[in-house]
Design a protein around this nucleic acid. Structure first.
Lengths: 141, 141
DNA sequence: TCAAATCCTAGTAAAATACTAGTGTTTAAA
DNA sequence: TTTAAACACTAGTATTTTACTAGGATTTGA
């Protein structure tokens, strides 16, 4: 089980926007600071925009910015926007009733895991990440 | 983020072995009770065997059985055997040092999530699943 | 006007996943 | 000792997902 590059790159992009909170950041600047392909990153940011996490200014001097303060955006929101909900089994996501008995025995487990992951993701905001980062930077001085 | 069918099918197979604890169960019986392709399931069971979770008896009247009591086998063990460790980011798995600053800012988050998932998986044994299942069955009576 | 930027749609290469196929080996039971 | 049931092992392959790439359209500040 792992997250895809969508989640990894997208979260890094969101982190950059959090760092630049207050003014829009151009795609190419995000891409170059993270060494990612612009066109791919663009699609990820589009997902974040659709989810209402990011807003854009078009045209010259435009760019991407967060719609809310970093403290109001959880990692969970970012990742769901990029990868969809993390329903772990089909049976859970579809809401389809299990006809198979022992499938149902495993169902509870998946729900338990799913909750644990969601809780972990919800407990961290972009602001927390900024704080972590500045602490770490300070230590290296 | 989701688990693959390997994890889902494999856990269901392990659950069946837990139900039949004490005597080996033939592949075809597991496959038919779970409606899975025999040849595919065979490969999953081979993974479980390599991990020491399952042992086999070859030849006529043979089959697969758990090497330990259901209470001694965690869901985590089963899933790791099937999908490998669930290190969530490459950077974590490879142990490669991050040269990119903001990557490191996200690193902590991934570790946190990874721990949450592992804890959730470790907290459930096959015996717990059996108990859940018999409780649920009792309720339907 | 024009250049810098996002927007939108489509295609595509690579990797992972989920199988299928076939043959070989072991062993209990007839 | 034959036979059939069962696991062991290797290889191939179809499907799906992922991770991009390509190219043009639209918007807008200077």
């Amino acid at each position: 089980m792992k997250f895809t590059t969508k989640a990894r790159y997208g979260l890094r992009a969101a982190f950059v926007l959090a760092q630049n909170w207050g003014s829009p950041t151009a795609l190419k600047d995000i891409a170059s600071s993270q060494q990612l392909a612009e066109k791919y990153l663009e699609q990820l940011l589009t997902s974040l925009k659709k989810a209402g996490i990011v807003e854009t200014v078009r045209g010259s001097q435009g760019g991407y910015s967060l719609t809310k303060r970093p403290s109001e955006i959880t990692v969970n929101q970012v990742i769901i926007a990029l990868e969809g909900d993390l329903a772990i089994t089909d049976c859970q996501r579809d809401g389809v009733a299990c006809t198979e008995e022992s499938t149902c025995a495993t169902k509870k487990i998946w729900a338990r895991i799913s909750n644990a992951v969601t809780e972990a993701l919800q407990s961290v905001t972009l602001q927390d990440m900024l704080d972590d980062y500045s602490d770490a930077s300070a230590q290296n001085k």
